[in-house]
Nucleic acid binder design. Structure first.
Lengths: 222, 222
DNA sequence: GTCTATAAAATGATAGAC
DNA sequence: GTCTATCATTTTATAGAC
């Protein structure tokens, strides 16, 4: 995990429909608040039939997290290799993370809950989140070192940026909500304004992000 | 609800110890992930004895939310009546919210989960949260109107600020974590830097907040 | 105010027919 | 690949003794 591209899912297959329905239920009622019967009902199969596609309830959850986290890590990694300013990297990272979460077919809002990730089944996923955090923290620290970002506690800023990202998603109501197209840029603007030594640079940075975002899908591999 | 000061709790009584233990378990494992047996065990009584103190599991949760939310609403209301700049009001609001959550004896991290609040038992609490949001949104909108804050979507900024607040608390590990004293100011700085038209004002604003925070408990009633 | 005993329902998962 | 039937466990909550 932590990097590889998950095998694409056929969202019309039973397996795909289970993932889709489960992600929505997890987002609405949480992992513990969603029973395997609820999921089965949403897919219109019987509860035991679920276990033909996933060996356990937690395997559904794991699959969803990995599908969301893998590409995210890939995107930051990709940003770190580019010849751009730190401000551009961070702005594009935040904006494309928000956008991906809004355009992907499943709902990722219920996935990053400490209470759930605390279970032993998810050590691997916790490690993946840690990797993602380390990469973004490195990005922030570099920006500060080179005088682009204000002096700050990178660990704290990482958390703050994460909070902005998730609340943005929460407010949107997930992929089902009518996507407000400006949200990815607004979220990135908020974080960058809080960090930039030269707030005047923001307009230029936003223009760069806007262009890159419109280049189809912002390929993760470069 | 929505405003009144909850009756003070004796944290050494059985009822108080139930609230304390439950808040920690809710924070660690979530509402649905915590059973009444878990709570009883932490308090060293038998599970049915809980129901002598609270008529249902959700009443424990309700009590905790109300204890946290009521004072929060009181504080913002109080800020709105003061003769200070909008920047000062917002900075102090964020900082004292973070600080209160870090110094109060119970752990509020597990309380504001959409998945839990979606239950019909908590309509009243959802309403309280709405009131709090409306007040903060009004504060932000006023700051923008008077040219102190940048042009923005107040609803979005409210969410972003909220995200910063909760991630700060999450990172701290709740009241049990060794409080990093600078966190309340860091969180408020982050939000204000993202909003201020004149970032240079931040130092002065921070000084004001610092003074008010050190005036004992920042009385909510004035 | 706490206990034991227990009800009543829901949960994740398995066995085996079709 | 889906079904019925069912198990073992855990859940919230109640009854009633002390």
């Amino acid at each position: 995990m932590a990097d590889w591209q998950p095998t694409p899912v056929d969202w019309t297959s039973t397996r795909g429909r289970i993932l889709l329905a489960a992600s929505e239920l997890f987002a609405q009622r949480g992992y513990f608040g969603t029973s395997t019967r609820d999921i089965a009902e949403a897919v219109a199969i019987r509860q035991p039939s679920l276990f033909h596609h996933f060996s356990a309830k937690h395997e559904i959850f794991r699959t969803l997290i990995d599908m969301d986290l893998g590409p995210s890590i890939g995107r930051v990694r990709s940003r770190l290799t580019e010849q751009t300013t730190w401000g551009e990297k961070l702005h594009l990272t935040v904006a494309s993370d928000v956008r991906e979460m809004l355009v992907q077919p499943f709902d990722a809002r219920g996935l990053y809950q400490d209470a759930v990730l605390a279970m032993s089944e998810f050590v691997q996923e916790k490690r993946g989140i840690e990797i993602f955090h380390d990469l973004v923290e490195e990005l922030i620290r570099s920006g500060t070192r080179d005088g682009e970002f204000v002096e700050c506690d990178a660990g704290f800023v990482l958390r703050a940026a994460n909070g902005v990202l998730f609340e943005t998603l929460r407010e949107q109501g997930g992929p089902r909500g009518r996507m407000r197209v400006q949200r990815p840029l607004q979220a990135a603007d908020f974080v960058l304004r809080a960090l930039l030594v030269e707030p005047a640079d923001l307009d230029r940075i936003r223009a760069v992000t806007q262009r890159r975002l419109s280049e189809a899908a912002v390929p993760a591999g470069g």
